[in-house]
């Protein structure tokens, strides 16, 4: 199975800029649990510029979940807000950063077909 989580972060780091995050300023850390271990990803955001690292640093928002769930989020198979409400994704600190960050997760895959149909020509 390809590693969606790692791909997601590495790709974000390569881009270095993400317009959807231009109102996000701060650092968000994802503590992804797998077995006994914790995989840590840190994204520092400022006016749309993003830097991805794996260092242990202070974060304005810390988000904990199973790594499998994060895989689902970046594949569009789970919804972040619903996951928070179910208690499987627990954010701490500046929740606004997570609200902005979740913009990067794709749509639930069940929408894919319909999506193709309704998108008209460019604006």
């Amino acid at each position: 199975m390809s590693d969606a989580t790692e791909e997601f972060f590495l790709e974000l780091g390569r881009r270095g800029n993400e317009p959807l995050l231009r109102n996000a300023t701060g650092t968000i850390r994802f503590d992804l649990h797998r077995g006994d271990g914790v995989e840590r990803w840190v994204v520092a955001m400022k006016n749309g510029d993003v830097a991805v690292s794996r260092r242990q640093v202070h974060a304005d928002c810390v988000v904990r979940m199973d790594r499998a769930l994060f895989d689902q989020l970046v594949r569009g198979r789970a919804n972040a807000m619903a996951a928070v409400l179910r208690g499987v994704l627990s954010p701490e600190g500046d929740l606004g950063l997570l609200v902005l960050f979740q913009r990067l997760f794709p749509a639930a895959s069940r929408s894919a077909e319909r999506t193709a149909k309704i998108t008209k020509g460019a604006a």
């Binding site: 609200v99 913009r103 794709p106 749509a107 929408s111 319909r114 998108t119």
Partner: peptide, 15 residues
């Protein structure tokens, strides 16, 4: 409302 603005096509949420 700006923070929660839709970004994707999601039929379930009519987003």
């Amino acid at each position: 409302l700006g923070n929660w603005q839709g970004v994707r096509l999601d039929d379930f949420r009519d987003e």
